[in-house]
């Protein structure tokens, strides 16, 4: 099952980008083989709806987990509907560190995105 992280440059040693919808790159990591691939985030240039666009990418990749700094209400609702687990990168600095932390102890090491009020988003 793939892990996807937001990154500021297209490298596994890049810092995690704190933004989900507007984070520069999305790096897809295979936790078993440690293979990774960087994709430009489709949300970056969007005038609106960046979060839903990035979430669509995550869904199309069939990822199980996604790591970023925060998930906005639209992105949260979309990822929640898809059943993707949302994690915050916390004290990890790079994409490599964060994905390793999640891989080694997926239950505790990274904080989950707190629940959001989605009464007005995503019907």
């Amino acid at each position: 099952m793939k892990i996807i992280l937001t990154a500021s440059s297209p490298s596994i040693d890049s810092n995690v980008d704190a933004r989900f919808g507007r984070g520069a790159y999305l790096i897809v990591v295979d936790p078993d083989t440690l293979e990774w691939q960087a994709h430009p985030n489709p949300g970056v240039g969007a005038s609106g709806g960046a979060g839903t666009l990035a979430a669509q990418f995550i869904a199309n990749q069939h990822a199980s987990s996604v790591i970023s700094g925060d998930f906005g209400p639209n992105a949260y609702n979309a990822l929640e509907a898809t059943g993707v687990a949302m994690y915050l990168y916390g004290s990890s600095r790079t994409v490599n560190e964060a994905s390793n932390t999640l891989r080694q102890d997926s239950s505790n090491a990274l904080a989950r995105q707190p629940a959001r009020d989605t009464t007005r988003v995503g019907k």
């Binding site: 979430a55 639209n74 979309a78 898809t82 988003v121 019907k123």
Partner: peptide
């Protein structure tokens, strides 16, 4: 629908189609 929406207000996520009214 998701492809034609200029505002990314409707998305197809696997077997779900979600509408985002505020977008």
């Amino acid at each position: 629908c998701a492809e034609v929406c200029q505002y990314h207000a409707i998305t197809v996520l696997g077997k779900k189609t979600l509408v985002f009214p505020q977008l």
